[in-house]
Design a protein around this nucleic acid. Structure first.
Length: 193
DNA sequence: AGGAAGATCTACT
DNA sequence: GTAGATCTTCCTA
């Protein structure tokens, strides 16, 4: 088997909904304390800039959300209701936006994830944005970190395009857009709902 | 200094 | 299915 390649910065330099859809099936890697935690991306959501009332960028650039304006292919991590949300910056040149990782299917380092987030049923481990951040040890410290180096604490490996992609409206947002820009793997048990 | 909002989760019934 | 807890950040005073 040939070594899996890290997705290059150009992958993220497209509109957020395209990146969100194409991230399904890719492998999210978290290197933490000498351990390697991996999962397949099974659920994402796209967020735009000023025109998107659900986006953290909607009310303008602040210290905490500045990453959304910066180069695609970096992490954007922010807090909501006690949990850290893991995003990757994604937008066209000069644009603003990101993709939220909502759920992954754990494929390596499951025991290490379980230590951080003990659950009876593996399906509860990473099937939600707050859940996966706990399991993967994601905190604000990772904000702004590039995901395009294989040595980075969080990076993403390429994989063949995922089959069976479905869409819906975004979850939990108070004011959504008319477009369906949540993407998830049809029938996958690790999707958040 | 205090209040409100928020892309959530858990533990009930 | 719904109520309540919990934390970070921003806004106003």
């Amino acid at each position: 088997m040939s070594p899996r390649k890290v997705l290059p910065a150009g992958f993220y330099a497209r509109s957020p909904e395209v990146v969100a859809r194409e991230l399904l099936g890719k492998t999210l890697v978290r290197v933490l304390g000498g351990e390697r935690l991996e999962g397949v991306v099974v659920e994402t959501e796209a967020y735009h800039g000023g025109g998107d009332p659900a986006s953290r960028a909607y009310h303008g650039r602040k210290e905490y959300n500045a990453a959304m304006w910066e180069e695609p292919g970096r992490l954007f991590v922010y807090n909501v209701h006690k949990y850290w949300m893991l995003n990757v910056v994604a937008h066209l040149p000069g644009g603003v936006g990101g993709v939220l990782f909502r759920a992954i299917e754990p494929t390596a380092g499951v025991e290490a994830m379980m230590r951080r987030r003990p659950v009876r049923d593996v399906r509860e481990l990473t099937s939600g944005p707050g859940k996966l951040s706990i399991a993967l040890g994601v905190t604000r410290e990772l904000n702004g970190y590039p995901v395009t180096d294989s040595g980075a604490p969080v990076h993403i490996l390429d994989a063949p395009p995922a089959a069976g992609c479905r869409t819906s409206h975004r979850i939990g947002v108070t004011r959504d857009l008319p477009e369906e820009i949540r993407f998830y793997a049809d029938g996958n048990r690790f999707v958040s709902r």
